[in-house]
């Protein structure tokens, strides 16, 4: 708010002095346009998704969201298998990557010093930049056999099999493989952004903790992490966003089977993988509309996730991080 008033004042001042004022207002308009482009893209994308999916919205109604069959032959389209696929894989990926990434961030900021820290920071950022198709190929050609031959039997030997999440093994391309690779993909992102916010915790705060006689562990869990929590939450949400939207690697690994399942050893499909597989491949107008509607659902999910994240961050921030 204060920024607006300030710039208006500046503008009146500068119009009087001629050339500089022109340049300034031109620049202002330019930045305004740039801002509008972002808004415009959002509106255009959402609008296009909505308009294109109208035929299927009319055909299937709201039940699109919980119908379980997606059949071009019967011309029936239900999104539930893909929604559950997306939720299941993102949830497990986040569950695994979250704590590990926080651990990495704490290690990088609180324990490592000097060259060693620089090297590790560089490595984490390097890993964060690997294209997803590489993760997909690596997952398919190498990691898949590790998961099948070691990880899967290990899980099957534990009481976890009592849970519906770890039932009989369906195929080696399954939700577990996809979730594990997703976890690997998002952890450098989460740790990188968490590190940024941990770095910004003032030394005074830590010193105060130490002065009160806290141990290192107590300083980290009681002072540093709470102070940086808003940044950590937003890092986690960024990671989640990537997991939900990840297309290439998941398409290569998840098995692309449409079924509603909570068993991580079953092949499944996500909204993104469905779009990657089926778009531009069909001349059936209703199937096309249904795909657009899946895109719309994905868009809304991303929107909600981000809104929730913002809400969390601002509520935590008030308690005093910044």
């Amino acid at each position: 708010m204060s920024g607006t008033t300030e710039s208006t004042t500046t503008r009146t001042d500068l119009t009087a002095t001629g050339r500089t004022g022109l340049g300034d207002s031109a620049f202002r308009i330019l930045t305004l346009l740039a801002g509008l482009v972002v808004l415009g893209i959002l509106v255009v994308v959402a609008g296009e998704l909505l308009v294109e999916s109208v035929p299927n919205i009319a055909h299937e109604g709201v039940s699109f969201l919980w119908k379980t069959q997606w059949s071009t032959r019967l011309n029936r389209y239900g999104a539930l298998p893909f929604v559950t696929g997306t939720v299941m894989t993102s949830a497990l990926a986040l569950l695994l990557a979250g704590p590990v990434s926080l651990g990495i961030a704490v290690l990088l900021t609180q324990y490592l010093r000097g060259v060693l820290r620089e090297v590790f920071v560089f490595l984490v950022e390097l890993v964060a930049g690997i294209p997803s198709v590489i993760y997909g190929l690596w997952g398919l050609l190498f990691f898949s056999s590790i998961v099948t031959n070691y990880v899967t039997p290990a899980i099957r030997a534990t009481p976890l099999t009592a849970l519906p999440f770890f039932g009989p093994v369906g195929a080696s391309s399954n939700m577990l493989l996809a979730s594990l690779v997703l976890a690997l993909m998002i952890s450098p992102i989460i740790s990188s952004f968490s590190r940024e916010s941990l770095v910004r915790v003032p030394q005074d705060q830590r010193d105060a903790g130490v002065a009160l006689g806290l141990t290192r562990w107590e300083v980290i869990t009681g002072v540093v992490i709470p102070y940086a929590r808003a940044g950590i939450v937003s890092a986690v949400i960024l990671g989640l966003g990537r997991a939900i939207g990840e297309t290439m690697a998941v398409t290569m690994l998840i098995g692309n089977t449409q079924q509603v399942t909570v068993n991580y050893f079953d092949p499944a499909a996500t909204m993104s993988s469905l779009l990657a597989n089926s778009f531009n491949q069909t001349s059936n107008p209703l199937a096309n509309a249904a795909l657009f509607e899946v895109g719309l659902v994905l868009f809304l999910v991303a929107f909600v996730v981000n809104s929730v994240a913002r809400a969390i961050i601002s509520s935590i921030s008030h308690e005093g991080s910044r």
């Binding site: 398919l140 099948t148 391309s173 398409t251 290569m252 098995g255 692309n256 089977t257 499909a269």
Partner: peptide
């Protein structure tokens, strides 16, 4: 509408899965 099985994208995707599975 496949009654059973897993899907690979493209001939190369199926070929890769055939070697893995």
């Amino acid at each position: 509408d496949w009654p059973t099985g897993v899907g690979g994208k493209g001939n190369e995707g199926v070929a890769a899965k055939m070697k893995q599975q």
